[in-house]
Design a protein around this nucleic acid. Structure first.
Lengths: 163, 163
DNA sequence: AATGAGTTACTGACATGTCAGCAACAGGCT
DNA sequence: AGCCTGTTGCTGACATGTCAGTAACTCATT
């Protein structure tokens, strides 16, 4: 066993700062979103992902995969959002196991009302603080990490029940 | 009301990738840590923060502030860690309200055993994927965001019960 | 058609976070 | 001493995530 390669000073500083940024940024954006629209970040993710598909209709399985959620998490969360009238659930026509999640009219309206202040919050708390180069580097960094970790890369099942 | 300044293509891509990186990176590092040491990231944060203070003794209030946690969250989590024998709780001598959190021998041992594989995981999943410049830019980005959002900056109480 | 392995979604039990409320205390003031 | 305001930490109720288990279904093969 080789001796541990500890982080160098700059590496340790970057790692700590990254973690602190994550905590503060998530919190602030979630608070802004909730204050402006009464939505959680997860609610917003569901609504905006749904709206990106023609007809705003997704097979539950695909929606879970897109969100990097387990199907269990999706079932719980969609159940709550259905109670609030934001989304709709119905069985699939062709596959008896399936479920189709779709936006309700109200869900669409809430999303349209939520988007502008949410984008403003993302700008205010992150994007507009950075130079163009910094945004590009952030993208590069994230791309590298995702390339290593993305489920398409193989051995990282997000769903405990998945094959 | 001015029309919404939507994100540009590169900005939107960076924001989405950042969010996906966050999800995947957190998950992977948390899984590695749990597999290697039976700790959660929050457990590790508590233990490592405690160990950074001479005597590994912290006033609860200060520990919560350092971790950016509410005092309520700290009370719950420390209660659980106390049950597991990782930390110790005792009243303060001078201030009858206070509580002192300290590392137990076992807590110190668990931390020392957990640190090397955790650092390796951080390297494997983030640091070693990046160039030196990218690490430096990540640090700069995080620094800017923190400067804007840090509680020291004023109006962001993390504890709902704080003044 | 019948079997059996894999897929899909839901559910219940549990872990962990949030907030509101509370009890005990500190410290300045009268 | 007595009072008042603010601080500190704990608790209970609740929201949201995890995992294991299950029911219903699909599809290839027999």
């Amino acid at each position: 066993m080789p001796s541990t390669r500890w982080l160098t000073g700059p590496q340790e500083r970057a790692w700590r700062r990254y973690r602190r940024m994550r905590t503060l940024l998530d919190l602030q954006i979630a608070r802004d979103l909730n204050r402006d629209s009464g939505l959680s970040e997860t609610d917003y993710d569901v609504l905006s992902t749904l709206s990106e598909q023609p007809g705003s209709r997704w097979r539950a399985r695909d929606l879970a995969a897109q969100l990097l959620w387990s199907t269990s998490r999706l079932a719980h969360h969609v159940g709550r959002m259905e109670q609030r009238g934001l989304v709709n659930r119905e069985p699939t026509a062709d596959d008896g196991r399936g479920a189709i999640i779709s936006l309700t009219e109200q869900g669409r309206a809430v999303l349209h009302q939520a988007a502008p202040p949410h984008v403003a919050s993302v700008r205010r708390n992150l994007i507009d603080l950075l130079t163009e180069e910094e945004v590009a580097t952030l993208d590069t960094i994230a791309e590298k990490v995702i390339a290593k970790l993305a489920p398409s890369g193989g051995t990282t099942p997000l769903d405990p029940n998945a094959a």
